[in-house]
Design a binder for these strands. Structure first.
Lengths: 362, 362
DNA sequence: GCCGGTGCGGAAACCGTATCCCATTGTTTC
DNA sequence: GAAACAATGGGATACGGTTTCCGCACCGGC
């Protein structure tokens, strides 16, 4: 009734099968494969031969149970089809692969419930780090929620990394990789102002989204610096999508709002805005200038090519992974708190063809 | 010298810790958590209390070693930033999540070496299936390579799924989810022809890419059906990117090629072509019509909005996962070969604003 | 009051690998 | 030629769960 391993069994072969067939011990096979122990040439050949014959690969679960195993990073993303997120993911994935790490991707669809479920799932998987991507909603509950995640992961020997979000308050075990969001918006708005624009329609994004808040703040500061007040109704909030850009401009035109430029919260919103202007018979940039934010490939594929703010998304991904890897190498040194756990990358304006000085009005 | 589990240990807590603290046996805790065995209310409360206190989660590695564990699908993709691929990935991921499955993402960067490494890595992880995304290069070696992957995965209890590629020849244990690539190209080309275009610049993609081959074949069939021959030099091969579209059109114009429409291999190529035409002072669609392929969001964000072929990428992803899940449920029934393992989804032309009848020439 | 049945908790045997420790063999040295 | 030593292979154990098999206690029925 010998149950275990009937010949021709469909299941994958184990290290024991290899050992048996090669006439050596299990330990020897393990050593040949991991290569961190001296083995005779003869043994190596014998084992490798069988490994090839059986097309054997080690069981990753067993391996990580036994202590070894390849480190894994989990990337949690709102929507995998967002270009900006995809670039961060690419950065993380690339840097992970370079180190032989594995990367998992999960999408939350903006649902806190799923976010929680995913964080727990990743905790089960014993991932080295969980990378949370994208702007966050600035509700009161948010800080508490993230702090809980951070501590929970930390206790499990993992680590939370926030990318593209403001850092957590207090002494929370998390790393933040951020970009100079407000500074970029300031520069972008200044670019419009210095071109002579005074009446600018601003579409920063959702009012509760931290990203939108920063971009709006940057614009406000620039306007202040130029001594130009925001006209009434010149700011319209809404989601970061094409439709919002389209509708916001369409509505503004219908309402008779007077503006010579559009400061969009993202490139996609800018694309929608551009389309709406065209539909209304206005030319870009001759009649109305438009600028975006993010510098995703779309920006340079539109006609006219979009002047926008470059955000080093892919590099942020790489930096995030490096931070995790360093902390893992460095051991438990310098855990003095959340200082040094906040990295900020620069942004800059990319000038293309979507801005002109405003047309002379009579 | 009691090594194991010094109080306040940083590592994650085990099921044993929970059992000890709740004053019950390890087995009882397991039963409460997996819930597949009757437990008294009292026991459940006691255990759950401790689980919450300790913020305990089961170790996924240990669990899957012991037989349980959540199934995992691996998605292998050339470039995560490609919009089409991202949508397939979204479909797979969504359907996986719906079933409580986990999904891994790996990028190959078009490198066969990395592809092999990743397939093996996934085999180690014991994934339920490996989903390979995107068109394949039609080299001789390719069929052998994939067949080897398929058998290798099959032997390990896993399964290979090819999405957006032609099916493998012979009796190979793999599933293919495909779309009517050639049919879509035929319809698209017919659309141009019926609008009166006779001189069409065709940019199908890389000559060796199966996707490009199918699209070119579809176009050829349509031209034949209309009795229109391809003019000399009207087909230009190249990568599926913006730059290729731009340069192909630029070169063609410089070479004095005469054409009234561009049949681009993808929407991104179409965007590049459009830009090049504009740069040359030509209007779209008044002077030259353009059509794309894929129907990614970009298509409707360009000005004019692009007439293109809709490919149900996200649904393909869902279908791929369902196929894997079904096969897993169904057990080892009906393994009669590779029939029924090839699913083809339909495509259709989406008419927007980038096509007009050709201008009257003198 | 005794017995059989039922319900639930506990001990132990795995799952597949890495590694510690020890045994064996061959080699060098006095 | 014997002893000390280096090199290398093997056996046992641990990793953290799940699950099977048992046994105990409690219940009702006669």
């Amino acid at each position: 009734m010998s149950q275990r391993k009937a010949a021709g069994d469909a299941g994958r072969s184990t290290i024991r099968d290899v050992a048996e067939r090669a006439g050596v011990s299990v330990a020897s096979v393990s050593r040949v494969l991991s290569g961190n122990y001296p083995v005779s040439e003869e043994l190596r050949r014998r084992v490798m031969k069988v490994v090839q014959d059986l097309d054997y690969v080690t069981n990753a679960h067993a391996r990580s149970l036994a202590g070894g195993g390849t480190p894994t990073v989990a990337i949690l993303i709102n929507n995998i089809t967002g270009a900006a997120f995809a670039h961060v993911a690419k950065g993380v994935e690339g840097a992970a692969t370079l180190r032989g790490w594995l990367s998992l991707v999960g999408t939350t669809g903006d649902d806190p419930e799923r976010e929680l479920a995913l964080v727990n799932l990743m905790r089960q998987q014993g991932v080295a780090a969980v990378v949370l991507l994208g702007g966050a909603y600035d509700y009161d509950e948010y800080q508490l929620r993230m702090a809980r995640f951070a501590r929970s992961l930390d206790a499990a020997g993992s680590h939370l990394v926030l990318v593209g979000r403001p850092p957590l308050e207090g002494d929370v075990p998390a790393t933040t990789v951020d970009y100079d969001n407000e500074g970029g918006a300031y520069a972008m708005a200044s670019h419009l102002l210095s071109a002579g624009h005074r009446k600018v329609l601003v579409l920063p994004g959702h009012a509760e989204l931290t990203t939108a808040q920063g971009r709006l703040r940057g614009a406000e500061r620039a306007f202040e610096a130029y001594g130009v007040p925001f006209g009434p109704g010149m700011v319209r909030h809404g989601p970061y999508d094409y439709e919002h850009g389209y509708e916001a401009v369409q509505d503004s035109l219908r309402a008779g709002l007077d503006f010579t430029a559009v400061l969009a919260g993202t490139d996609v919103v800018a694309a929608g805005a551009m389309q709406a202007l065209r539909a209304a018979g206005l030319r870009v940039p001759e009649d109305v200038s438009i600028v975006g934010y993010d510098d995703i490939p779309l920006a340079s594929q539109l006609t006219p090519q979009l002047t926008t703010v470059h955000v080093p998304y892919e590099e942020m991904g790489r930096v995030a992974l490096r931070a995790v890897a360093d902390r893992r190498e460095g051991g438990s040194g310098r855990r003095k708190g959340s200082d040094g756990d906040h990295l900020v990358l620069g942004t800059h304006v990319v000038v293309r063809n979507s801005v002109r000085p405003p047309a002379q009005r009579t």
